[in-house]
Design a protein around this nucleic acid. Structure first.
Lengths: 137, 137
DNA sequence: ATATTATGTAACCATACAGTTACATAATAT
DNA sequence: ATATTATGTAACTGTATGGTTACATAATAT
């Protein structure tokens, strides 16, 4: 058991950020599954009824139905009824927040990596030497 | 149990793509966890020994150790020993493949969404009417 | 009215995973 | 040599997830 009653700031970020992050969390975890990403890829081609989607994959229709539910929960797709179909449409919105997370990393592969590496290592070396590392307990 | 012996083309993409995708899969699934993303965020600030990393989070050190293993597996971090420390360094490389996946979606939020929506829906309407939908089984 | 089609959900199963505590090991400090 | 520190891993637990089959329901076709 760790003593977190003493943990300072990091434990509770401002509410607004929390909400934004939960959006991002949902998106990231929805994207973790290859099938779901493939569903989105498919939906890039246009609106599709769920059965139509299911037929493209080597898994059962209920499996796809569940994937769709997860995508819905993450707001990555929207559902609209039409007759006995449920049409699914891609909603790219939440991908923006994925993109914005990635944004911070883009420099890293834009800049010369090897330079960056040694720079960062040197930084750490300095840090290690200077820091008394008295921070907890 | 479904009969996959009969499944046609979609089941086996060219080997080269498979490899690339498994990289991407590993990256995406590693990123699914908020703690792991936070670890990467931390590592953006420079190389860190694992204990140092663990101390930043409200979970046990072994938990972080496991996260690090997953990040390692996805090649998102690299480990280097130094004395009794294991230094972890961010490796942004696999994020490129995440980025390249996102790339296909960027148009969607760049262009006017509402226009795109109605366009896509119309496309589908056309499709639905024309397509005999005789494709399987 | 009855059958068929499109779809979602419940119930179940196996596996993965995030977390924990306890233990093992290697490097440093005393 | 012995204690301490930094770290990983094993064993265990609870929960989520991806898959399945079976069932329920609503809309359309006959």
């Amino acid at each position: 058991m760790r003593d977190h009653s003493v943990t300072r700031l990091p434990s509770r970020p401002p509410r607004s950020l929390t909400l934004a992050n939960s959006m991002r969390d949902a998106a990231f975890s929805a994207l973790a599954d290859p099938t779901r990403r493939a569903v989105l890829d498919l939906l890039r081609g246009g609106v599709r009824p769920s059965g139509d989607i299911a037929r493209q994959f080597p898994v059962s229709r209920p499996a796809i139905s569940k994937h769709l539910r997860i995508l819905r929960r993450a707001h990555l797709v929207e559902e609209r009824r039409q007759g006995r179909h449920r049409l699914y449409r891609l909603n790219p919105e939440p991908l923006k927040s994925v993109d914005s997370w990635l944004e911070h990393y883009r420099n890293f592969w834009t800049a010369s990596l090897s330079n960056l590496k040694s720079f960062v290592e040197d930084e750490y070396a300095k840090e290690m030497l200077s820091k008394p590392e008295s921070k907890e307990k």
